[in-house]
Design a protein around this nucleic acid. Structure first.
Length: 298
DNA sequence: GTGTTTGTTATCAA
DNA sequence: CTTGATAACAAACA
């Protein structure tokens, strides 16, 4: 389940590996993941290169080079949704392996050698590097958009980014004002705040000492401040640790994230709270598994 | 066979 | 128009 820190980790790794390299071959195995016409998709990418990689929330944005005489810039959007992976295999790397410490877990998480039955698309770069888009459940997608389309998507679908100046306490406070939804549901809403998913919402609420089922509008200013800094804190630390691997997230080298061992509540049902020792509760809220400590969160 | 996992959108309701 | 709640999607696993 890639959320902001996982997508950011992939973005950084790919940026240092594939920028300016020419795309020499495309293998599109599953038209369901393509949001464009197949021939348009190929024409938009083949014999071009990626000149920049950015991110908005959990959406990865590849800026594609123009050909001579072209004025409009196209972008390749990639959303990994729940089980999507982007794995880059360099020329002389073995298809499975290359990561000698955890070959077994790599192969298990990827679903075998590459490509495999979950490989929906493959991009081959000049020099031999291959980028595999794997997605077991096929919720993820690849989409070519123009610059105006990109700007529309970025502004209409996503609220402020954590760790940005746009996510001020003034905005955050106003955003929660008079809201009757649970704070959990509000934090999961990408239009209100971008990039958080089920794991980091639960973690941020634990750090702030706030129960997930509290109504957004019921938070005091002090609680809002605490929550905002907890969100920024957990996102920052998770990026530093290259994200969280819970079920099948892997970074672009096929490695797991290191933040998993720093989780306080997510996936820790019944285990002792790291602060007080009480058992961690798990309930269903906003349609999602929700973890919290009854004693430390109020 | 049943329940559970979650990011996002569609749909319906108030 | 805004807000909120819920189902649906998809595939695998316990």
């Amino acid at each position: 389940m890639p959320e902001l820190p996982e997508v950011e980790t992939i973005r950084r790794d790919l940026a240092s590996a594939i920028l300016k390299k020419k795309i020499v071959e495309l293998k599109l195995n599953d038209s369901k993941v393509l949001k464009n016409d197949r021939s348009f998709f190929i024409e938009s990418l083949l014999k071009r290169s990626v000149v920049n990689i950015s991110r908005r929330g959990k959406l990865l944005i590849f800026e594609i080079s123009r050909k001579k005489g072209e004025n409009d810039i196209n972008y390749l959007l990639t959303h990994l949704k729940m089980t999507g992976q982007l794995i880059l295999i360099n020329k002389n790397e073995k298809i499975v392996g290359g990561h000698s410490e955890n070959n077994d877990s790599f192969e298990k998480a990827v679903g075998g050698s590459l490509p495999n039955k979950h490989t929906r698309a493959e991009i081959v770069f000049a020099g031999g590097a291959r980028l595999f888009f794997n997605d077991l459940r096929r919720f993820g997608y690849l989409q070519i958009v123009s610059q105006p389309e990109l700007l529309k998507i970025k502004s209409e679908n996503y609220g402020p980014e954590p760790l940005s100046s746009e996510l001020s306490i003034k905005y955050f406070s106003k955003m929660l004002n008079k809201r009757t939804s649970s704070i959990k549901a509000l934090l999961l809403n990408q239009k209100l705040i971008a990039g958080l998913g089920n794991i980091y919402v639960d973690e941020a609420l634990f750090l702030a000492g706030i129960r997930p089922m509290r109504e957004g509008g019921s938070l005091s200013l002090a609680e809002k401040k605490k929550l905002l800094s907890s969100i920024n804190n957990v996102i920052e630390k998770a990026i530093e640790n290259r994200g969280t691997t819970f079920s099948n997230y892997l970074d672009s080298s096929g490695r797991k994230g290191n933040f998993s061992r720093l989780l306080n509540v997510y996936g820790r049902k019944g285990k002792p709270c790291n602060k007080c020792g009480n058992a961690i509760e798990k309930i269903k809220l906003a349609g999602r598994g929700t973890h919290f400590c009854l004693k430390c969160q109020s």
